[in-house]
């Protein structure tokens, strides 16, 4: 009502909501409960969706919906909720695109994704984590991997990494940025190289 408000109060409201979401609690929940489901989620999407080029976009949209719902109330347990969101998203897309028949997603309930397995023990998790990190590193381009190792393991500064690799600091930036993007995909999106 006030004539002093910004021209776009809706945008302003969205903005403040998004900031309100950036609470450590919600991020913590997302990292702890949702991201570890990503490999299973990608498997599910891959099996259910014919257009492979859209899988990452779908995954992102699932995260958006999950977090917007979690902002109101964090769902427990996370797993059935995340997969229900994914299923609904696919149904939405099917209706919208008229390209795939509704049967494509009709057997989603048969996936049994809501079943909670007993968690692996701590040692098994440490071993698994090690394997996963190793796999992720192995998949990076050699120069990017080198930059990551110098940064993470030897704790070098950008300047030192640049000297060590004989490149400029901006190139170090490029390598690390690419590595960060790729690590998220392999660490969360891909199943373990070896079966646990």
């Amino acid at each position: 009502m006030s004539d002093k408000t910004d021209s776009n109060p809706d945008a302003e409201r969205r903005r403040s909501q998004a900031i309100a979401m950036a609470t450590p609690a919600l991020e913590g929940w997302f990292v702890r409960e949702v991201l570890p489901l990503e490999a299973a989620l990608m498997h599910f999407l891959r099996r259910s969706w014919p257009n492979k080029s859209e899988l990452d976009d779908l995954r992102q949209e699932v995260y958006v919906r999950v977090c917007e719902a979690a902002r109101k109330e964090i769902p427990h347990p996370a797993k059935p909720f995340v997969f229900a969101v994914a299923r609904n998203l696919l149904v939405d897309r099917v209706r919208r695109e008229h390209v795939v028949s509704i049967e494509t997603v009709s057997d989603l309930d048969a996936l049994g994704v809501a079943v909670e397995e007993p968690g692996p023990d701590r040692n098994a998790m440490a071993r698994q984590e090690l394997r996963r990190l190793q796999t992720a590193l192995d998949q990076l381009p050699p120069r990017a991997r080198e930059a990551v190792l110098l940064r993470k393991i030897e704790g070098l500064s950008y300047r030192e990494i640049a000297l060590r690799m004989g490149i400029g600091e901006d190139t170090v930036s490029e390598h690390l940025s690419k590595a960060m993007y790729a690590l998220a995909d392999t660490l969360y999106g891909e199943p373990l190289g070896g079966k646990p």
Binding site: R15, A18, M21, A22, E27, F30, V31, L35, Q60, E61, Y63, V64, C67, E68, E129, L133, A136, V148, K152, M180, Y181, L183, A184, L187, Y188
Partner: peptide, 19 residues
């Protein structure tokens, strides 16, 4: 700007911290 930005950022940061 969007929840997609937020979740994308959380995701890359979490992976980087895992390393």
């Amino acid at each position: 700007e969007s929840t997609a930005h937020l979740t994308a950022y959380w995701r890359v940061r979490a992976a980087w911290e895992r390393a």
